[in-house]
Design a protein around this nucleic acid. Structure first.
Lengths: 338, 338
DNA sequence: CTGAAAGCGCTAACAG
DNA sequence: CTGTTAGCGCTTTCAG
């Protein structure tokens, strides 16, 4: 069996309270005994039992991360940031892949609650009323990462998606492009869908480009879907000279479609992605993309959650990290307008 | 405060043991009381405290995953398999990114031990003597995933890397290629390095190709390094018509180099990767690659660990899952030898 | 400065 | 079938 505090006490010839003290308030124990205890601890390779401590402190030093799917490189980057922050603050992280499935998510929430996690990092998902209800029910400290909620008073950290999309499209316009298509996520997605679409539309509008609905084609998350969406885009709008993709994965689908059609990037068509996942510098040509501070999002999310746990509240409630355009080789000046 | 078993007992008008019983052996309680208790539980939204249970059962239903870096898509895939298996077996998973750093890894090991994890999934790393010492010291059940150990009696699940590399290279040879280069990981890597190199060499040898050392260039894990390695390969061996890359990321580096040089794939040079990460079907051209059953590796790893925890031992100790070649578009028959 | 004792929330004998 | 009681391993008063 693993050694307990009693074993240490016996070996050191002191009471268990003394052992406890050398671990929690070493100064309150005379040196002679302290040394004895420390030696006993070393000899027995004693480690205090986290259950017993948890029972008293009501803290597990564990955080639950709810995230759609760790295989998505964007999420993996966020988690890495979380994990580093967690380590430096003394937390461990439990991963829960939700697949954006309601039941799955709620079952994880219950699970986390039962495991006595100190808080939850709710990542990249919409906060539906029933989720919020559960959160309240369990009185769990929650921080939203890469998502936010306008209805509920939940702390969050994300970028400003609308502004980022606006900047990406403005860049393309600045390059001289007039006919800019977009491969968008469904507008029902309140984070990566609607705001990025709105940013795109605002850029067209403010720069005086025709924008009756824009040249927007919708796709659902995956590469394949973006590829066929690109087909539809160029089918409907053959004169398109630039494409703004709502994610790097979408941009890769566009690149693939264009390559297949023998359309040269960026000579004939420019492409700008979104996220700056690592893969985006491995494409041919390398992708120009709107970068999210992926790692920081996760890192700050944990720091924020930590503050929330410690103080019961945080300011600012909703935090927006800066985005930045990474200029690589997939976008070039538009032809005939220079 | 969260409700305790005592609150439930009071509300239901029974003793705490009865409450405990309806949770652990419902049949041993008369219906009338059981219903009362169940109602009380529902009303109070009672959930048993995992610390208290853990203290008694000495089980946390939590598994620790030590893995180099979750951002690597290969590892992310493995973890996803682990997580699904864990969920279905009632475990949670704690992620520990080691960065292949000794101190970091050992600190996580201690951490996991203190948190009373029920077992460890040691993934894609060499088991050095000091790691093994810690494992023994903590008497932690461990399963190696995507790695194994011939020195120590540790259960493991991985593919047969030597055979997989052999098959990949044989495929290229079958396609008529005679001058096949390899971008290898350092041979000091006993999992993805040496065995894949050996498989490559054996294929050359058994098929009667010149193999005085082979045409091997070494690189360290990353895309960039593989790209420059490809430069060296073609510098030293200009007549190379096919490249076997020790990972898909390496293969992407090769693809990038070749594209930059205007060398067409697969018309002039064929490329075969290793792993079959999702991204490999998003390259241009799509990558032909030796697939590892990534998800299954993780899934089976957890199942194995579960058995180890339950029974104290498992057979077979070292398990090897099948690999399979995924033929896509980056490899074609070699010119002039058909 | 130190030990005895109470108790965190739950389970598991042990009587009844 | 059910309640009482003794811990699980640790921290924390409270005396001394």
């Amino acid at each position: 069996m693993k050694p307990t505090i009693r074993d240490v006490a016996k070996l050191a010839g002191v009471s268990i309270s003394t052992v406890s003290r050398v671990m929690n308030a070493p100064d309150s124990v005379v040196e002679s005994k302290r040394v004895k205890v420390l030696q006993a601890i070393e000899r027995l390779q004693y480690q205090p039992n986290a259950f017993a401590r948890g029972l008293i402190y009501k803290k597990s030093h564990t955080l639950g991360v709810l995230i759609p799917d760790i295989r998505n490189p964007y999420y993996a980057g966020v988690i890495r940031g979380m994990e580093d922050a967690a380590k430096s603050l003394g937390y461990s992280i439990i991963i829960c892949n939700t697949d954006r499935d309601k039941e799955r998510l709620i079952s994880y929430l219950e699970n986390c609650n039962e495991k006595q996690v100190d808080g939850i990092l709710f990542t990249s998902e919409t906060v539906y009323p029933d989720y919020y209800a559960e959160i309240r029910r369990f009185r769990l400290p929650v921080v939203l990462v890469s998502t936010h909620s306008l209805e509920y008073e939940l702390p969050s950290v994300k970028i400003n998606d609308e502004a980022a999309a606006y900047d990406a499209v403005s860049y393309l316009i600045g390059l001289g492009h007039r006919r800019i298509g977009m491969i968008s996520l469904p507008l029902s997605d309140p984070i990566a869908g609607l705001p990025r679409y709105q940013g795109y539309m605002r850029a067209l509008r403010e720069h005086g480009l025709p924008h009756e609905g824009g040249q927007v084609i919708y796709a659902e998350h995956w590469y394949d879907e973006a590829r066929s969406a690109a087909g539809r885009l160029f089918g409907q709008h053959p004169q398109t000279t630039a494409v703004f993709a709502a994610s790097d994965e979408f941009a890769m689908g566009v690149l693939s479609f264009l390559h297949e059609r023998g359309i040269r990037v960026p000579d004939e068509v420019s492409v700008v992605g979104f996220d700056n996942i690592r893969m985006s510098e491995m494409t041919i040509p390398q992708l120009t993309t709107m970068a999210q501070p992926v790692y920081e999002l996760g890192y700050k999310g944990v720091e924020k959650l930590h503050r929330l746990i410690e103080h019961g509240s945080v300011t600012p409630l909703r935090e927006y990290l800066p985005h930045s355009l990474i200029v690589r080789s997939s976008a070039a000046p538009g032809k005939g307008t220079q």
